[in-house]
């Protein structure tokens, strides 16, 4: 195995082989999370900076725990709003961080492409923890890990992704990842939330949620951003109508395969994209996703930390 990536900027640059390497590595790390002593010395002496320029609780927490369980020193920087608003450019902010000699910067940023910008300018590894409406690779990988764990396979799985596809980095990363591993994706969402030509990313675009869910092995509901006010015009008449046409409830879920699982990247808006009875039902694997997130992020940090040098074995 040679994992030749210094950075994880998205799923798009990863091959099918890379994805399986990450998932298999995460299997090894998952065991640690159930031990009494949840720590291995793998990244002892390494410094990981979690630079979050956009609000996030769970992704930051997950990366922080992942780093700590690998014995890396993890430091968090949070800053809401763009660095330019503070009068400092992103490059200057990054150079200041780099001067403290981190080995890995885990970055969340509101601007699509911001991690690419950093990766081009810095020497350390950059792991994208979500950039604008572009990619959220660690989320897609933990989603795949969970699907494989629950379904025993990825190839040929029918996966429905429902919600605000336009603004969703989770949807994009999952589209790339699921296509690489041979799963089939169906998308559904309001017409205002489907980006143009999204079918070219490898998905069947459905007009109704029912059509997307029918016969699905996995139903992934995306978060509706209650606070999103698009400058380009209104996206929804009301959350009530959204919930009726695009929300997941037990009735709609009966259209999926009997053993279908329900996923959500969190945090959920109960009663909007997902009814409480589904959110608390036996089909949902949402907490498994959160748990697996730590193992997958450990795998990413581990692989990136050793990704520069060639494998000699």
């Amino acid at each position: 195995m040679a994992f030749g990536h210094k950075h994880i900027l998205g799923i798009e640059p990863l091959s099918r082989e890379d994805i399986f390497t990450i998932l298999d590595t995460a299997e090894g790390f998952k065991e640690i999370n159930s031990r009494d002593i949840k720590k291995v010395p793998t990244l002892r002496g390494r410094t990981i900076i979690n630079a979050f320029f956009e609000n996030s609780t769970r992704t930051r927490l997950s990366f922080e725990i992942a780093g700590k369980r690998l014995s890396a020193d993890t430091v968090n920087i949070s800053s809401s709003g763009s660095s330019v608003a503070k009068g400092e450019t992103l490059e200057d902010t990054a150079r200041n961080i780099e001067a403290m000699r981190p080995d890995i910067i885990v970055m969340r940023h509101g601007a699509s492409g911001a991690p690419h910008y950093l990766a081009e300018r810095l020497d350390c590894s950059v792991v994208n923890a979500g950039d604008g409406a572009h990619e959220h690779p660690s989320q897609a990988l933990l989603d795949l890990f969970t699907m494989r764990e629950k379904k025993g396979r990825l190839e040929g799985l029918e996966v429905a992704i429902v919600g605000d596809i336009s603004h969703s980095r989770v949807a994009r990363s999952n589209l790339y990842a699921l296509n690489r591993v041979g799963a089939n994706v169906r998308l559904a969402g309001p017409g205002t939330m489907l980006p143009p030509e999204v079918d070219r990313l490898g998905a069947r675009v459905c007009n109704r949620i029912e059509e997307a869910i029918e016969g699905a092995d996995v139903v992934m509901m995306l978060r509706i951003q209650l606070e999103r006010q698009a400058k380009g015009g209104p996206l929804l008449p009301s959350l009530r109508e959204y919930s009726r046409f695009y929300g997941l409830n037990p009735d709609k879920l009966t259209l999926a395969k009997p053993d279908a699982i329900v996923m959500h990247p969190g945090p959920m808006n109960r009663g909007v994209e997902i009814s409480s009875s589904v959110a608390d039902g036996s089909r949902n694997v949402i907490l498994d996703q959160v748990e697996n997130g730590v193992a997958v992020r450990m795998a990413l940090l581990y692989l990136v930390a050793g990704g520069e040098s060639e494998d000699k074995d």
Binding site: M1, A2, F3, T21, D24, T25, E27, G28, F29, E31, I32, V40, P41, T42, L43, L70, A299, Y302, L303, V304, A305, G306, G307, E308, S309, E310, D311, K312, D313
Partner: peptide
Amino acid sequence: MYRDDLGSRGSLPVGK
């Protein structure tokens, strides 16, 4: 995960 040569050998596959 307990190796002391990550830097020089790269990331070897992690087994269970």
